[in-house]
Design a protein around this nucleic acid. Structure first.
Lengths: 359, 359
DNA sequence: TTGTAAGCGTTATCAG
DNA sequence: CTGATAACGCTTACAA
């Protein structure tokens, strides 16, 4: 038998006061209006009756749902769960909950999603799926919905964001490779519509020239997605281009995994012949063969900070909200996929060329 | 400028009818009560004004939130995201959304979670975090909340579930190992409070005796969690016990990964000296060294079916709800972590090749 | 076929 | 400090 939920009215009746008194006594922000003894009685009674506020009624009245939407490309992609976890943990502190939605990068799905979330009356949005120029975000912003992007950002600085220090990450990777004696370094860049792809590529170019490394357009391949297949394809492109290299900097781990597989198929070993680096430090990449040298980013913290930022916005009057941008530090994780260039730098190049002739 | 949301009243005014007419025209189930032309007009106007139902008002009135809670141990654990995805996709078809909550296996957190979900007025629950004897579930059931467990189940058959065919999975693994010539097969069993751990263990014992394999208690180790560390510890236990074995059946992939690492530390190679099998076919286990032989389970589908089941319950009057139990088929994935027992003869190897072709 | 009106459980305004 | 009352937007008997 499903007992009807207890309401303010029930508590009021039990204590012998009016509903509105109960409402005030139970809200920390208005409790001071009530005589302490009465308030205590009310609190006690509400506990005893197991009173729980009706979220729908609260929402209807206050026009706040204490719900935020979290939109991401695909929860199945390993880098997102920690973000979500961070978001939820931060929200939980304020009695907010999250509704998830996956876009799959599909615009039609994205349309549905905003529709659903709007109907649900989410108070704000955490977006992990944005492109640098994002029409959907523009619409949402112009509708006045509080937004924070996480992991990525849009070009418009008016939209708050929490991202990782891409420039520093790429710089550390290049420093690491250079310290191992590498100078012919290729780059598999990520999709340039995404801020991560673009910023990592830009950082690569920047620090490469700062370090005085070979600059050859044949050493750059652009992946059209952050996945293994594109990593493989990009290596093919690099090899076909014909410039020799002893290391490849990949814009994320999955590209690196694909790259290593493709190299192997060509009889080129990693790290023996070519060092390869990833980015993100996904789960399990420490157990691959070879374990991946990569940049560790703080996904959980990014999610947490993003939610904190969003909550702060929600607590601020719409007309005095200011965008904020947080950049989280990153860490270089050196593992087995990078190794020192075996003494004379030309030796490896020869090995590579030999391999190529054999095919 | 945040424009106030369009309500039924606005649409009614635009068309020149009463709110209730609009309400009826917009609900497929009552549309037939309205003159087609009027209905069309209303639909058109509502589209044009971008009317969206106020979820809070709907909930308050109908006492249905079109929201379900999804409770799991930790979204960061790789086997859960596909489940969630399945749940959300199935729910989306009916305009339901999911609220996620992570227990971390922590009872205090679990308490908070039920509290939050109850307050939110979820219509039902998908539970991926249950133990075989679960106090929390009992409470929820006795409160009359519709529940479906996924991936795991509780002992009480009154609670609906969607699980994988553990018995068949273990059977296939054992058949596979036997066909490779193994007869001394150890087992790293999972936590016995969880249905997965218990069923896989039971299946192992059952099929082992059916196949006439060595039965030695020293060939069994119980892990206290489904993780790599416990896999390592269990191998130590197995080795310390002193019975010799040529294969280890692990209750899931993470245990297997830990087991292989521990074996390696002892100078025992996999699959050269000992074959190891996993369970679940987590992402990336095909790229480990060695790639893991394992059982593939249908996590997405499990989530999808669980949500379908739950939705069906929600559409059924409380007094005529019947528990349902779905068991999904599994698949053996043979990779590099298992190999034919080399010692006696090449005979064994031939058998293996035949077998591989068959599968 | 459509309109009327009540009421879901809260919060907020205004008296007292 | 507390009570009465209205209103949030919607669904749904019931009336017309």
């Amino acid at each position: 038998m499903i007992r009807k939920r207890v309401t303010l009215k029930d508590v009021a009746q039990a204590v012998g006061v009016h509903v509105s008194t109960v409402s005030r006594a139970l809200d920390p922000r208005t409790r001071h209006l009530i005589t302490p003894e009465v308030a205590d009685q009310i609190v006690k009674a509400s506990k005893q009756l197991a009173y729980r506020q009706n979220a729908a009624a609260y929402s209807l009245k206050t026009n706040r749902s204490r719900t935020v939407g979290v939109v991401l490309p695909d929860i199945t992609n390993q880098i997102f769960p920690p973000i979500i976890r961070g978001v939820e943990d931060a929200l939980a502190e304020h009695n907010y909950v999250a509704i998830l939605a996956n876009t799959d990068g599909n615009p039609k799905r994205e349309e549905n999603i905003s529709e659903t979330l709007r109907t649900r009356g989410v108070d704000g949005l955490v977006l992990a799926s944005v492109e640098r120029e994002d029409e959907a975000v523009r619409r949402l912003v112009s509708d006045g919905i509080p937004i924070v992007t996480v992991n990525r950002k849009v070009n418009d600085p008016g939209v708050s964001s929490v991202v990782h220090d891409e420039d520093e990450g790429v710089r550390r990777i290049l420093m690491h490779l250079v310290s191992l004696g590498h100078s012919q370094i290729a780059n598999i860049a990520g999709p340039q519509e995404l801020s991560t792809g673009e910023e990592r590529y830009r950082a690569f170019e920047h620090h490469r020239s700062l370090l005085g490394l070979d600059s050859d357009p044949r050493l750059i391949a652009f992946a059209h997605g952050f996945n293994e297949t594109e990593g493989e394809r990009s290596v093919e492109e690099l090899i076909a281009a014909g410039a020799s290299f002893t290391a490849i900097v990949c814009s994320n781990d999955r590209l690196a995994i694909g790259a290593i597989a493709a190299l192997r198929r060509h009889g080129i070993s990693c790290p023996g012949d070519v060092s390869v680096t990833g980015y993100n430090d996904m789960p399990m990449v420490d157990r691959l063969a070879p374990p991946l040298t990569t940049i560790r980013i703080q996904q959980y913290r990014a999610g947490f900070e993003a939610a904190k930022l969003l909550y702060a916005m929600l607590e601020t009057a719409p007309d005095q909200r200011k965008p904020e941008h947080i950049v989280l530090p990153v860490e270089l994780i050196v593992r087995g996929s990078t190794q020192a260039l075996s003494s004379p730098a030309g030796k490896c190049r020869e090995a590579l060329n030999r391999k190529r002739e054999i095919e």
